[in-house]
Design a protein around this nucleic acid. Structure first.
Length: 882
RNA sequence: GCGGGCGUGGUGGAAUUGGUAGACACGCUGGUUUUAGGUACCAGUGGCGCAAGCCGUGGGGGUUCAAGUCCCUCCGCCCGCACCA
């Protein structure tokens, strides 16, 4: 670790102020001790029958990659603060943990290291569970499961069968990236420059028949219900809404001049029917059925289509690629003018998955269309012009704001001056009236393809029979268990190479049949685990009464990278589980919080290789290698990643400083939704605060050991001020935690710590001060309990309390101490602060104005002038306009 | 390309949601104590200026008595885009 010193826990420290010998706080012994005591007392085991109001707090469960990383520490610390706080507020809190354990890395490990995915995964889980346990998280480990446990995926198969029966599952083809050497499907990110990431083979596009969940059945509901998710971040709601992508438009067919290959028209969908008079050409997706038919007897077109497919399947790739087109030579008739013929082109930027896979292009008002038209010298016809600057389109398409009024050129559908929105409505009505097209609602959302041609996933419980076709596995035959005896020495899916597992009689006709060898997308596993935690050992997917009592999750916390897919799939699953009787609600997560990433500086050696932080020593802004002394370049601050080696191991941090320091650091300074930079200096700072609190607590304990429990009648100035500070602190920390503003709670605690230190050092002889000191220290420790629970427990005992702090209810504060009866109002002259005045808090406008005008300081400021206006905002500000 | 977000001292950030910009912390400077040192404690710390004061929340413009906050515009950076989890 760069520049990091290891605190020597055993050396007693002297203090410059009092010289009293104090014990140094030693997390290495204190933390395991309290973890054991919580464990013995079972304080985090949650009872489903507990009569108190429920609160379900959940963090996104980890993938067992091998080690916990700092992102997990941040995520689980936040969740733990909420869980501990809500327990202190009297709720029956469910705070479980499990493992998102299926997925590709286990298979990669199997191929690279000849270790079975199951062994690899469970070994990782064991290791990571140990890492989590030393964090002191208040988790109910009795509910733990991994998604690769047979007990879990068996229930997932039952859900699949129920969904299938309910008509929520379908089979259709879809296009995938196929690595011909590894015989496997590749994710877009695994295709690098058109080649497979592992094999280096040229990637092909293949059509595969796959299983899909019909998430599009719920498109509108998934969209509409976003409005009700008022405890979700707006950005996530917006992203989901855009992902679902509802749009109104016109669907109609262009009549082909000469029918061919069984097509006599081309169906198009457009969200801008008002631009029909600017139509330049009709564009087909390379995957459009007509394109395919034409390519069969047109080698050049086939070559063009193949070229388009080399771009990959991702939307970003397609839309960013240079525009490419192929003139089919076909023409279609414009619907408003049979003599107007438009050429039909195949274009690489047209998506088959959206609309009909065919468009008409209006280059004047769409940049992509314009780029294409300029490249292939196709006509560009303005349909409307700006009212302020009515110049014809050259190389920038004129795309006005939807609410901007423009001047129509062709008077199509009676348009003259209108906004785009009005024009769309008008043209749809016009076309519908004429009867050659209809207004339709289109969604960008596609059905969820769940088939994966891999071993380490939940088997899809169906059987393919030569005579009966696709037959669901009867529920009584579940689970369809993954065979253990598989090898990874052949390319492709091991389940395909396992005849003994694959071959089964047809459940219907008993004839020869084979199991489906595809497994489910791991997103399926994570789409209902939150429901499983409510009854993780049940012999049905859920126990509906129990699940319905616990759900929805009151606070869900995780990375923003899941803002769309995981959260949308989970919302779909809740609806599908409701439809099949496993749940009675549609929205799984009432409150959502997306935390930022953990970042760190990057380091590079002289030869450009990445270096781990512990290989580097930084002094005076210059870095060198810890062993060789070579010059090290300090790079940008980036999200911690193995590839750049800018990682800090949580276990090392906890062994060095203790879990409380790691937790405190993660909550300090940076707002939880922003990226946080891990620095050694910050960790040292966090640790110093822990030590400081422990010192203060010891001083308070020593000084107040003989203090009576009874509250004194009166307090002196120092004591009163201290009491105000600590009551306000406890009150506001609660408020901050409820708003998940942990960084603000931390700042208040620092402030209260400073005040406690000052009061402790004061020579005030007030007999009530000692009582107030103990109260303030107790409040401080109580406020810190959700964040640094081990220190808090230890300090609580030190202060003479006998109950376990973790199970204590949050103290009531004295509301009379929360507010002062006077306050200081700033006085502005022409909006600039020139002074202030102290007034009674209850003072009304007139009183304040009179006081201000009679204030000598104000009279000096005005220098004889009379203000034109006096603005008094009670309890806020006074502004004199002169 | 489309969609989303962010921008405040040397640094992380705060700002009661339109009302005293810079709370709190890191760092730095000076001092005190003790120690070999880390540590602890006290004071200071947005910029310019001797001062009165002026300037200051990515740039420019606007609304308002009042703008970090609202509107317009430009710039920069980050994230997502459907088989990674």
């Amino acid at each position: 670790m760069t520049g990091m010193t290891t605190p020597n826990a055993s050396t007693p420290r002297a203090n410059g102020r009092s010289k009293a010998e104090r014990e140094r706080y030693n997390p290495q012994t204190v933390e395991p001790n309290w973890q054991a005591r919580w464990d013995e007392a079972g304080v985090f085991v949650t009872d489903n029958e507990d009569p108190r109001p429920k609160y379900y707090v959940l963090e996104m469960f980890p993938y067992p990659s091998g080690r916990i990383h700092m992102g997990h520490v941040r995520n689980y610390t936040m969740g733990d603060v909420v869980a501990r706080y809500m327990r202190a507020k009297g709720y029956n809190v469910l705070h479980p943990m499990g493992w998102d354990a299926f997925g590709m890395p286990a298979e990669n490990a199997a191929m690279q290291n000849k270790v079975h995915p199951k062994d690899w995964t469970y070994a990782n889980i064991d290791h990571m569970r140990g890492q989590l346990k030393i964090m002191g998280l208040s988790l109910d480990w009795t509910r733990e499961f991994a998604t690769c446990d047979v007990d879990y995926y068996a229930q997932q198969q039952a859900l699949f069968l129920d969904f299938l029966e309910a008509g929520l599952v379908t089979r259709k083809t879809s296009r995938v990236n196929w690595d011909p050497e590894d015989q496997t499907v590749l994710a877009n990110e695994q295709v690098i420059d058109g080649r497979g990431w592992r094999s280096g083979a040229l990637v092909e596009q293949r059509e595969l028949t796959q299983w899909f969940f019909k998430i599009t059945d719920f498109s509108d509901d998934l969209l509409e219900a976003l409005d009700g998710l008022d405890r979700w971040p707006d950005k996530v709601r917006t992203m989901q809404a855009n992902w679902i992508g509802k749009s109104q438009g016109l669907r109609f067919a262009f009549e082909m001049t000469k029918p061919t290959h069984g097509h006599d028209g081309i169906d198009v969908f457009t969200t801008r029917p008002d631009t029909l008079m600017g139509a330049s050409f009709v564009g087909l997706s390379p995957d459009h059925p007509l394109t395919k038919a034409l390519a069969e007897d047109n080698a050049e077109l086939a070559k063009f289509v193949a070229e388009c497919h080399r771009l990959g399947t991702s939307e970003a790739d397609l839309e960013q690629a240079d525009k490419m087109g192929f003139d089919t030579g076909l023409t279609v008739k414009h619907p408003l003018d049979p003599n107007w013929e438009l050429p039909v082109w195949v274009a690489n930027f047209i998506l088959m998955d959206y609309g009909t896979g065919a468009i008409f292009a209006c280059p004047a008002h769409d940049q992509r269309d314009l780029d294409f038209a300029r490249k292939y010298d196709l006509p560009v016809t303005d349909t409307f012009v700006s009212l302020t600057n009515p110049s014809p389109v050259e190389n920038d398409a004129f795309v006005p704001q939807k609410s901007e009024k423009v001047k129509w050129i062709n008077h199509f559908a009676g348009l003259d001056e209108a906004t785009g929105d009005e024009a769309v409505d008008k043209t749809i009505a016009f076309v519908e009236d004429q009867g050659w097209g209809e207004g339709v609602t289109q969604y960008r959302l596609r059905d969820w393809g769940i088939s994966r041609q891999r071993y380490w996933g939940c088997p899809i419980p169906v059987i393919h029979c030569e005579t009966c076709g696709v037959i669901p596995v009867p529920k009584e035959d579940l689970p369809v268990q993954l065979p253990d005896d598989v090898t990874f020495d052949k390319p492709g899916n091991p389940l395909d190479h396992h005849p003994a597992w694959k071959q089964v009689p047809c459940p219907k006709c008993d004839g020869p049949a084979g199991r489906e060898t595809d497994t489910m997308d791991t997103f399926v596993d994570s789409s209902w685990y939150f429901a499983r935690f409510t009854a993780s050992k049940a012999e049905t997917p859920t126990i509906p009464d129990v699940a319905n009592a616990w759900l929805p999750v009151d606070q869900y916390i995780g990375g923003v990278e899941h803002a769309i897919l995981h959260l949308l799939y989970s919302r779909f699953f809740a609806r599908a589980m409701k439809a099949t009787g496993h749940l009675n609600m549609s929205e799984p997560f009432k409150g959502l919080f997306t935390q930022g990433m953990v970042t760190h500086e990057t380091f590079k050696g002289e030869d450009g290789r990445w270096l781990f932080p512990e290989e580097v020593i930084v002094e005076d802004g210059k870095a060198r290698h810890v062993d060789t002394g070579e010059t090290v370049t300090i790079g940008s601050i980036e999200s911690m990643s193995k590839s750049k080696k800018n990682v800090v191991d949580p276990t090392t941090i906890i062994e060095t400083y203790g879990a409380d320091t790691a937790r405190w650091f993660m909550l300090s300074d940076t707002p939880p939704d922003r990226d946080i930079e891990w620095t050694d200096a910050g960790a040292e700072g966090a640790h110093r605060h822990i030590q400081r609190v422990w010192r203060l607590v010891q001083d308070v304990a020593a000084r107040t050991a003989a203090v009576e429990d009874a509250k004194p009648e009166a307090f002196g100035e120092t004591a009163l001020s201290l009491r105000k500070t600590s009551h306000r602190m406890l009150h506001l920390v609660a408020d901050d935690i409820e708003k998940l503003a942990f960084n603000r709670a931390v700042a208040r605690i620092y402030d209260a710590t400073n005040q406690l230190g000052k009061a402790l050092a004061s020579d005030d002889s007030d007999p009530g001060l000692n009582w107030a000191l103990r109260e303030a220290a107790s409040f401080l420790v109580e406020a810190m309990q959700p964040m640094t629970p081990h220190l808090a427990e230890e300090a609580w005992v030190k202060l003479g309390h006998e109950t376990m702090l973790t199970t204590k209810q949050w103290s009531e504060v004295d509301s009379t101490l929360l507010e002062d009866d006077t306050l200081t109002l700033p006085i502005q002259v022409n909006g600039k602060k020139r002074g202030d005045i102290t007034v009674a808090k209850s003072a009304d406008k007139e009183t304040v104005e009179a006081l201000v005008m009679n204030d000598p300081e104000v009279q000096r400021l005005l220098n004889g002038a009379t203000p034109k206006r006096v603005i008094v905002v009670p309890q806020r500000i006074v502004n004199l306009v002169v």
